[in-house]
Design a protein around this nucleic acid. Sequence first.
DNA 1: CAGATTAGTTCGTGGTGCGGACTATCGTCA
DNA 2: TGACGATAGTCCGCACCACGAACTAATCTG
Lengths: 150, 150
Amino acid sequence: MEDTGLATALVRLAHLVSRVYAEVSKEFELTPQQIQLLCMLLGGSTGMTEMSRALGLEKSSMTGLVDRAERRGMVVRVRDQRDRRACGIELTDQGRKVAHDAHRKVTAQVEALIGEIDPDDRERLETVVMGIVHAPRPATRAATRAHSPA
Amino acid sequence: MEDTGLATALVRLAHLVSRVYAEVSKEFELTPQQIQLLCMLLGGSTGMTEMSRALGLEKSSMTGLVDRAERRGMVVRVRDQRDRRACGIELTDQGRKVAHDAHRKVTAQVEALIGEIDPDDRERLETVVMGIVHAPRPATRAATRAHSPA
DNA sequence: CAGATTAGTTCGTGGTGCGGACTATCGTCA
DNA sequence: TGACGATAGTCCGCACCACGAACTAATCTG
């Protein structure tokens, strides 16, 4: 068996990040999932199906998620004229603002978590972690495009 | 404003790890929360209040979580004889086995996620992540003791 | 012993995610 | 052109999750 200290540490990191996400979301009176939705839309609007792929959810789960975000005025469904089955999900002005602000806050808090670190190491690590994140993966857990830099 | 690329990369990595957690949980027909509960109990049994602190949940949330784990035979409430208000939560044999197996699987899959990586980078990453995870933190998001190595 | 504190539960609310069934539309191909 | 299969999205019922407020029972403190 390999040394798994890194794996264990990463699992804990994931829990920590979830909490940061949860805390920041609460400040905006939204759920982490809704914030994630908004942040993802900063990368451009898409349809329900593509979003469900990107978030790793079933289509049927998206309906409710978008419903609730729409009810809060963060997002609108725009019926596609070409394909009248489809609809694009777009950020409202308010939604865009919230997405930006939340993204900033999350990033800042994670930065604070990282703390002081040698600039060389930082750059190196960024490359390494990006590599892991972008590595090709089986579709089942393909995409984690949310929280891309705006 | 600082460069926040590393923070962003870590957030994405955390999302990825969360998915691994979710996938493994599904294999055991449990939810991620239940698996986390079991893994935490590998470190020794505790009462409801302490567990809620460790998991960052309200006491009232624990009741249901433990109920469901108990219904599945993973865990038992043991009434404390000294303090008859309190009860200890203990793993059943089956619960312990599931906790161990799940922990192993999660660790292995996260290792796989990391993949081939330069040993120097690996060490650097481990140092940084360990540092983040073990850093003292305000109580509000204090503990993430689950998934300690068995 | 009275009153404050603590451990845990109960209840109601809103959110999450799933799978299966359904509607409407689109594309294809005969 | 017209039937038919694929596709986009919704609806429903289910189990779960987390919260806060109100509650019970036991313990501690003065």
